[in-house]
Simulated scan of single mutants.
Amino acid sequence: MKRILLVEDNIAIRENTTELLELANFQVIAACNGQEGLEIALTEKPDLILCDIMMPEIDGFHLLEILRAKSTFEKTPFLFFTASAEQSEIKKGLAAGANDYIIKPFDADELIELVSKYVGK
């Protein structure tokens, strides 16, 4: 079973997204901010990271930067999960090394399809 690290500070979005991914047979490890996400990533080594951008402690861009600097995470798919549909934010994330992004609110099928594209089922 593929393990997804979900880093999202909004509890309702975090819980709903966790449930959607678990129903699609992914194992989800959830973090409520970037600092917790970093600690979990380093110990759990997930197959994919789904990360909000605007969060307390460490934002998504900084989390991506920290993880990409470590050889263990050079190839780990990192997807931004953001309410910001601004092209500048999307371009900044992709330039920083993110593999893809999904804009909130999202369609459940779209989320599952995107995650599956990077880690399979």
Results as ranks from 00 to 15, higher is better:
23 L>Q: 14
61 F>D: 00
36 E>S: 05
46 P>G: 12
69 A>Q: 15
30 A>F: 07
106 F>N: 11
107 D>F: 03
117 K>H: 12
29 I>M: 10
105 P>R: 07
113 E>T: 12
53 I>K: 02
115 V>L: 11
96 A>T: 06
94 L>P: 04
36 E>K: 13
44 E>W: 04
2 K>T: 12
44 E>P: 04
27 Q>C: 09
27 Q>S: 14
63 L>W: 01
38 L>Q: 03
5 L>F: 02
94 L>Y: 03
79 L>D: 01
88 S>L: 08
94 L>F: 04
45 K>S: 13
42 L>A: 06
7 V>D: 00
51 C>T: 10
87 Q>M: 12
75 K>G: 05
95 A>E: 11
44 E>Y: 05
43 T>E: 12
98 A>V: 14
20 L>F: 11
85 A>H: 08
117 K>C: 09
76 T>R: 08
17 T>G: 14
52 D>S: 11
92 K>R: 15
86 E>Q: 07
5 L>Y: 01
115 V>K: 03
29 I>R: 06
59 D>A: 05
82 T>E: 04
99 N>L: 08
40 I>N: 09
73 F>E: 03
3 R>Q: 13
43 T>H: 08
88 S>Y: 09
12 A>E: 15
79 L>Q: 04
2 K>V: 07
4 I>F: 07
26 F>Y: 15
68 R>K: 15
18 T>F: 06
11 I>T: 14
47 D>G: 14
33 N>Q: 05
29 I>A: 12
84 S>I: 10
51 C>Q: 03
106 F>M: 15
88 S>C: 09
54 M>I: 07
88 S>M: 09
70 K>D: 13
88 S>D: 12
95 A>H: 06
82 T>A: 09
51 C>I: 10
60 G>Y: 01
8 E>F: 05
31 A>N: 02
20 L>R: 05
16 N>H: 06
60 G>T: 01
70 K>Y: 03
90 I>V: 11
113 E>P: 02
41 A>M: 08
89 E>C: 02
13 I>S: 11
40 I>D: 03
14 R>E: 08
73 F>H: 06
35 Q>L: 11
11 I>C: 06
33 N>I: 03
89 E>G: 00
103 I>L: 14
86 E>C: 00
76 T>Q: 07
100 D>T: 10
68 R>P: 05
55 M>I: 07
